[in-house]
Amino acid sequence: MARTTTGPVKRQDADEPPAGERAPSALTEFLRNQEIGVVAAVAVLVVAFSLANGNFASVSNMQTMGVDLAQYGLLALGVSFVMLTGGIDLSIGSVVAFSAVWGAWLNVHVGLPGALAIAVVLGTGALIGLAHGFAVTVIRVPPFVTTLVTLVAARGAALAITKGFPIDGVGTSFSNLAQLRLASIPVPALLFAGACVIAWFFLERTYIGRQVYAVGGNAEAARLAGIRTERRVVLAYIVSGVCAAAVGVLVTGRLGVGQPSIGNGWELNAIAAAVIGGISLTGGSGRVLGVAFGAILLVCINSGLVIMHVSPYYQQIVLGAVLAVAIVTDRLRARSSERRQR
């Protein structure tokens, strides 16, 4: 039935399908990416800060940035899954705090061994995500509202467990995870790199990952194409919950105490990193590479401004400005792609 285009009487329409699709080379594919903007911004910033102050590129500052990056980056990665499905997860900062004290409490007051306590914390994060997913898909509560409830409640739980005071005496499993270095690279940074690779593989090299994009791109079309959209959405919230719990564990390890007031407002940093990295606010597009560099950009800005003794208040303003640029870019991109429609 199909007429191939290789025959001798080949039509020369501009319309005719080209004979065979070649895989684009790695370089052209990279240059076509929308992620190139954020990657370039990171490169410029690193050079600028390094020139401005030699301490920026020092090993110890890089190591600090690596640990910060693990915290912001893991949260951004998790919330990106939710955003890809068209949702949002505001609860993650509070879930970090809850997980931090929950792990410490299990370890110190219940006496669970460190590894087991960590496993329980991660499991709890998954359950929180499951509850979010259930509320969003079955009860049809908007994601914003669902996770706002947890934002308030999880913070309350963290304070209730500790009665407001940090939990001391956390075991070495926690601190090992957060403070050790392999070949002078902090373990959390390695964990983040590993998480990026896994997330990249999942989203871009598995069919379930593609279905996550499809749900965010057009949920009804995805459903009618036979995709169990609810399951994909639930999965995304679980990923986000587990990532937040993991950051809670890292934070407790880093501080050596279960601190209930930690993580305040971190959800906004994470969402900002995702948006700066090109995750669309309406769902369905954006890549792990962008999210990773979005997080790197935020950490560089924070660290660079600290090193240059800029007041923390101004840091917030700079952050806000960067976010504004990212959001406006996102909208302009969406508009121009709509205009290309015939």
Partner: peptide, 28 residues
Amino acid sequence: QSLLLDAPVRWNISLAALPRLARFRLGL
């Protein structure tokens, strides 16, 4: 009801066949 408008033609065509295309029921 049909299209992922902003996604590539490729994604739109393979959408309903993804599980079948996957290796080890997962990899694409």
